[in-house]
Simulated assay, not measured.
Amino acid sequence: MAHCDPVPWIEGPPPAERPYALTGGRTEPSHPLDLASLVKARDPGPAGPTEPVQAEIVGWCRTEPLSVAEIAGRLFLPVQVVKVLLGDLLTTRHLIPSMPAGTNYVNRDQLERLLVGLRNL
């Protein structure tokens, strides 16, 4: 006889809406995003989004840039769902990508010199 654990594996009440219902069943974001991608709200942005979850995201991103991982954690939603929602907000220009302070892009010449240096080792 199998023992059934009476303790539920999910804490708190079940979500009011299934996660993928928030995206209309879509699983691919319209913009390439990874866990560390930062987004921030446009200032001033267009009229607020009509979906409550998206409005909440835009509200959080008004005070500081947030990563995909942070937003997923705050919403208790799967990362892929959050990426789709963020992609929609980027498309409608409610959010814009944000680069961390001090981010420097390496140009092709620097990469080629680095590669030559590594090959000479």
Rank of each mutant, 00 (worst) to 15 (best):
D43C: 10
E56I: 00
M99Y: 05
P44C: 06
P78C: 04
E64W: 13
P78A: 06
A55C: 06
P6N: 02
L114Q: 03
I96S: 09
A101F: 04
G45L: 06
S98K: 05
E51L: 11
E112K: 02
R113I: 00
R26Q: 10
V84Q: 08
N104S: 10
N107Q: 07
V79D: 07
P97T: 01
P15M: 14
T91F: 14
C4G: 00
E70W: 05
I96P: 00
V116K: 10
C61S: 02
R93V: 15
Q54K: 09
R18T: 15
L22S: 14
L75Q: 10
P52V: 04
E56W: 15
L90K: 08
L90T: 09
G102T: 12
L86P: 06
P32H: 05
V79P: 03
D109R: 09
L95C: 07
V7L: 15
A21Q: 15
D109W: 03
E51D: 15
N107A: 01
E28A: 15
G48K: 03
V82A: 04
Y105Q: 01
P100H: 06
P29G: 11
L89N: 00
P15S: 12
R108E: 02
R26A: 12
P49V: 05
I71W: 05
T92S: 15
L118G: 02
A36M: 10
G45H: 08
I96C: 08
L38Q: 06
S98L: 02
T27H: 03
V82L: 06
V116P: 00
D34L: 03
L85N: 09
L38V: 03
T50M: 01
C61R: 00
D88V: 07
N104W: 11
D5A: 10
V82Q: 05
V106H: 11
A47R: 09
D5M: 14
